[in-house]
């Protein structure tokens, strides 16, 4: 085709550099022996070691993992059933519900956070781990439902019809046909929900009470009190964990039925 434009490629390269530069710098500097400056003083693992001995950080990690685990299980169950139930509804209602499910994903997270906080305060539920989990399930249900619905729509209806024709009742059709076909999507949804929950800051920020500090809340308060090499190390770890989660989820979703 055209005069291959060099400019176009240059800007794309710049954009990619822009996307990855900061991340790479962050990871590199988490190994920098220098304490506060940007000058390179050799490779060290001491900042990672320091993290390991930070009791508060470990407690926050445990909280985060617990919240992510429970909210993922809850959201996958509720969201998965929602997807299955929706599929049987009249087309119109499906569209309405789908529109409604997009809402939690587009409204500003700050707003979701304050709204939940107001609810809990109004009905006198003390803020803590439980309120955080309830909130995380709220933003994870739409994610799970949409992901599982995407897969459900791609399934060949003939497969289920064939099973029914061969005498399977609706439970057997679900158990032996639909569920195995949905499995990659379900695991994909689990990984996404887990990652999103682990990474969430704003909803947690407004719904967590004392004793419910999560990893992002801890990172936030550390950043607020000043840039330190420990945060670099912690950040680098979090980056790697979420990248693995996403890569895993994508792998599961892309796998052919």
């Amino acid at each position: 085709m055209k005069p291959r434009s060099l400019g176009l490629n240059a800007v794309s390269l710049l954009a990619m550099l822009f996307l990855y530069g900061p991340i790479i710098v962050l990871v590199l500097y988490s190994f920098n022996a220098a304490h506060l400056s940007m000058t390179w003083r050799g490779v060290t693992l001491k900042w990672y070691a320091a993290l390991w001995h930070d009791e508060a950080l470990l407690a926050a990690t445990v909280n985060s993992l617990f919240i992510a685990l429970v909210s993922t299980v809850g959201a996958t169950g509720l969201g998965g059933l929602l997807a299955l139930g929706m599929e049987q509804m009249p087309h119109r209602r499906q569209q309405t519900l789908e529109g409604g499910l997009v809402l939690p994903l587009v409204i500003p997270e700050v707003m979701m956070g304050v709204a939940l906080m107001l609810l809990f305060v109004t009905v006198h539920v003390p803020l803590g781990l439980t309120t955080v989990i309830l909130g995380h399930i709220v933003f994870n249900i739409p994610l799970v439902t949409i992901m599982i619905r995407t897969r459900l729509r791609k399934l060949d209806p003939m497969l289920r019809e064939a099973a029914a024709d061969l005498g399977a009742d609706s439970w057997q059709v679900f158990r032996y046909v639909t569920l195995p076909l949905l499995r990659p999507a379900i695991w994909g949804a689990v990984l996404v929900a887990f990652t999103v929950s682990l990474d969430d800051f704003l909803v947690t920020f407004f719904t967590a009470g004392p004793g419910a500090t999560t990893l992002p809340l801890k990172v936030y308060s550390m950043i607020k009190s000043g840039v330190t090499p420990e945060i670099n190390a912690l950040s680098a770890l979090l980056l790697v964990v979420s990248m693995i989660g996403v890569a895993g989820s994508l792998y599961l979703q892309r796998r052919e039925v």
């Binding site: 991340i23 710098v25 800051f201 992002p216 990172v219 979420s242 990248m243």
Partner: peptide, 17 residues
């Protein structure tokens, strides 16, 4: 991929820069 990593961390990276 970067979008799926922790937003706080990505913002923090810019603080360093």
């Amino acid at each position: 991929l970067p979008f799926w990593t922790n937003f706080l961390v990505r913002t923090y990276a810019w603080m360093i820069l």
